[in-house]
Design a protein around this nucleic acid. Structure first.
Lengths: 223, 223
DNA sequence: ACCTGAACACCGTTCAAGT
DNA sequence: ACCTGAACACCGTTCAAGT
């Protein structure tokens, strides 16, 4: 997709890279290919970006900067945490094929730190100590990252193929050997049907409720 | 690392690839490089493996097959779930640089399905319904995958650099702008100190306890 | 200051020729 | 049946030459 003559800038290069990834996948991108989309020589990119790795970092930052947390400011901390986790997950909707880029590179840009600072703020305001807040946020990040990986279909995950004949199975299903995997087989129907929203909300709810039990002075705690 | 003359096999090729990744990182591997380690021509590999992608899939499968769940068979379901999650996480210890390969490609091999079947078995035996068991396992997978990503230091995560002078900060710390990130700054010490075991156990405990509350007939539930 | 062609040292993979 | 060199169509990046 040739996007025409125009002043070359870092922003345009990053946007072109993100676009190309979205259209053709991460494996398709190369400095030469991006340059072609921008109508310039491959080497021109190096006036704005030191390397391909740095460009991918910039793509990750660009995607992260699109996270929009909208919370009713009077919402309680549990709803705020939920909203923040959901906003993070929106990456998979907004940039499905860039998600892997985001998830697979460390990112300490302000765009990445902003949602984290916000989450810490929510927890500290809710009465959690600093150390607890950090561990809670780390737990949520791990859960959200893992959910993103599953959602873009790139990680090992608990699903079965939709149809497809498994080469060495007699039955026409993609189910694994019933002798070794009885449960995967008996649950095959449930496994084939996948609802990313429901899956995400299920785990999110578990985590939020468990965190609530942790909070000093909670009304629903067991002790 | 030249590993000498020997009958070329698929297993030797996969092991050589995993080894090379462990020694020099994923970006270092190429069919030519692996072949050099094996003392054969690059093209010889194609007699055993259809493509580089397929070889990386095989590496992921190889790593997954190393998962060893050891549970006291009389342990209750909560301890079993914990042991299973921990076994999964051991990947990061056993194959730190292959972890990204595992986490970044779908894997429906028997080696990958086995721990999943086992986890489902634990939950179903504990009295959870099939649909619930699936969602619980999916939640744990997401959490473990995200934890692996953090542990191998490859994902966006809640940490600060250990030292390193941030170029445009006056203070000699790597802390972000205190005006925009007050909490990240005030918690800088706690953030710099990281304990992967403690982090993992923290979130694992939250999840297990939340799942326990979910179980019909639980003794610690709120309703 | 920014752009660029040619060049270097690599890739994955095909193919035809070897044994 | 397995191996392999040469070749093809690519890579990222350096450098010197252009404006």
């Amino acid at each position: 997709m040739y996007v025409g003559r125009m002043q070359l800038t870092r922003e345009r290069i990053v946007a072109a890279a993100a676009d190309l990834i979205e259209r053709e996948g991460v494996t398709a991108i190369s400095m030469r290919r991006i340059a072609a989309d921008l109508g310039c020589a491959a080497m021109s990119l190096y006036n704005y970006v030191p390397s391909k790795e740095a460009l991918l970092d910039a793509v990750a930052e660009y995607v992260m900067s699109g996270i929009q947390v909208e919370v009713a400011p009077d919402a309680d901390w549990q709803d705020q945490v939920r909203a923040q986790a959901r906003a993070f997950r929106q990456i998979a909707r907004a940039h499905p094929r860039c998600t892997m880029v985001v998830v697979s590179r460390p990112n300490r840009s302000a765009a990445a730190l902003r949602p984290i600072e916000q989450a810490l703020g929510t927890l500290v305001s809710a009465g959690f100590g600093g150390a607890d807040s950090i561990q809670v946020v780390r737990t949520f990040i791990a859960y959200v990252m893992g959910s993103l990986l599953r959602e873009v279909g790139v990680a090992p995950s608990l699903t079965l193929p939709d149809e497809l004949v498994h080469p060495d199975r007699t039955a026409g299903t993609g189910s694994p050997d019933p002798a070794e995997f009885p449960l995967l087989n008996s649950l095959a129907n449930e496994l084939r049907h996948r609802d990313h929203d429901a899956d995400f909300e299920f785990g999110l709810d578990l985590l939020v409720r468990a965190v609530a039990e942790l909070r000093p002075g909670t009304t629903t705690g067991t002790s």
